[in-house]
Amino acid sequence: MKVVHYINQFFAGIGGEEKADVKPEMREGVVGPGMALQAALKPEAEIVATIICGDSYFNENIDEAKATILEMVKQHDPDLFIAGPAFNAGRYGVAAGTIAAAVQEELGIPALSGMYVENPGADMFKKDVLMVSTRDSAAGMRDAVKKMAPLAKKLLAGEELGSPEDEGYMARGVRKNLFRDDRGSKRAVDMLIKKLAGEEFETEFPMPEFDRVEPSPAIKDITKAKIALVTSGGIVPKGNPDRIESSSASKYGKYDIDGWTDLTEDNAETAHGGYDPVYANQDADRVLPVDVLRQMEKDGKIGELHRYFYTTVGNGTAVASSKGFAKEIGAELVADGVDAVILTST
C-alpha cells in the first residue's frame, strides 16, 4: 500500500520563517517526520513520496497551492494521504487540513492529519478529515505517530474505526447506531439522578458549540469616530519594553502613540516569532497602520486615532489567554470612548 505524506518547510529541514514562502515540491520517499511514521506503518504501507510546501506560500496562495499539490498526489495514486502532524502551528494546520480535505474530496483518497486541538485548522476541518489530537509542540511527535499509525492502518485496511476517545482522533460529529444494555429511559433517569446528586455524568449527545458574536452596529459617521488599533502581529515599541513573548504570549501591551506620526525601524519592531520579522522591523506600519491613520486624522477622514494601541503575539497563544486579553482590552476601549476597532493579524 502506498502513502503520500505532506509536511511544511520547517519539518523538511528547508528553513524557518524566512523560508515559509517556498512553493510546493515533491521528493521520493520519506523526509523528516516521515521516518518515524514510516517505521510505524511497516510492513503494511510505505511512504512513497513526500510533498513539502512553505506555510506562508500555502496560506497566501491557497488555490494555486492546492491545485499543484493535488497534481503531485495524483502522480503516485496513493492508497492514503497523511498531512502533518502540525501540532499548534496555525498556518501548517490550516494547510494540512485544507490539502487533506481536498485529496479526499477531489481524488477520493482517504486522508489523515493530526494537530493540537486549538490549531485553527482543527476547527476548520475536523468534521471532514480524520484528525488525531496531538500535543501543542513537536515534542509530542512520538505520541502523535503512535496514534496516527494505527489509524492509518485501519484506513488502509478499510476497517471500522472505534470511538474518538478510544482511538485518539477528534470527534467528527458522526452518529452511529449501537445497542446498549439499558434502554434510553433508564439511562436518562440515571443521568438525571447523577446530575441531581452533583456527580459527574457523560452526556450521550454533546451539544455543538456555536460561539458566534452578532455583528455590532455600523458607525454612522466615521469622520467623527474615535478609532483604536489592536494587533495580534506583535508590534511593540523598539526594544519590546514589556518583553512580550515571541510565542505562547502570556500578556499583551498597551502603548501610548500620542504624537507618533510614523512607525520606523528606530521606534518600533515586532515581537512575533511566527512570521519572518524582516518587513515589520523595517517598517511596522506594514502591520499596524499608524502612519495612514494619523494622516487621515489630520485630513478629517476619521475623528481621532485612539491614543493607545494594544498588541500581543498571536503565535501558539492559548485561546483562553487571547480571550482574557481581549476582554480586558474591550472593556478599556469602551471606557475610553472608542467607537470602532481595527484589528490586524499576520
Binding site: R91, V94, S216, K323, A326, A340, S345
Partner: peptide
C-alpha cells in the same frame, strides 16, 4: 480576540491575509 472585543458592542474590522 476579534470576537471578545466585538462582544462589548464595538464594531471590529479584522484585517488579515488568511481569510479562512
Amino acid at each position: 480576540m476579534v470576537k471578545e472585543i466585538e462582544r462589548t458592542g464595538l464594531p471590529v474590522v479584522h484585517m488579515c491575509t488568511v481569510v479562512p
